[in-house]
C-alpha cells in the first residue's frame, strides 16, 4: 500500500465517519462510500492541503474510485518533483 493511499484513506474515513477497513482502492466514493457532492469537495480540499497540489473541478469530477484519486495525486506529485 502506498503512502499516499494510507494518508488519503485516513481522510476519507474521517470525512465519511467510517472505518478505514471499509475503504479499498476499488471503493467508489459515491456508490460504495455514500459520499455526497459536499464530501467530495471537502476531500479534494483536504488532499490539496495535505499533499500541496492543485486539483481542478473537472479533474475531481472525473475521478470515481479511491484508487483513481490516489493515482491522480501520485502523478501530480511526480510532475511537481520533476518540474522543480
Amino acid at each position: 500500500m502506498s503512502d499516499v493511499f494510507v494518508r488519503f484513506r485516513q481522510m476519507v474515513a474521517a470525512v465519511r465517519g467510517i472505518d478505514e477497513d471499509r475503504i479499498t482502492p476499488e471503493s467508489r466514493l459515491v456508490e460504495d462510500l455514500e459520499a455526497d457532492s459536499i464530501d467530495i469537495v471537502e476531500l479534494m480540499l483536504d488532499a490539496e492541503r495535505e499533499f500541496g497540489i492543485n486539483i481542478e473541478k473537472q479533474e475531481a469530477q472525473s475521478l470515481r474510485t479511491v484508487g483513481e484519486i490516489v493515482s491522480f495525486i501520485e502523478a501530480r506529485l511526480a510532475e511537481q518533483s520533476t518540474s522543480s
Binding site: S37, I38, I40, V41, E42, M44, L45, K57, A60, Q61
Partner: peptide, 11 residues
C-alpha cells in the same frame, strides 16, 4: 454552481 461555491466558501 454547487462545487465551485462550496470550494470558494471553505477557502
Amino acid at each position: 454552481d454547487g462545487y465551485d461555491t462550496f470550494e470558494f466558501a471553505a477557502t
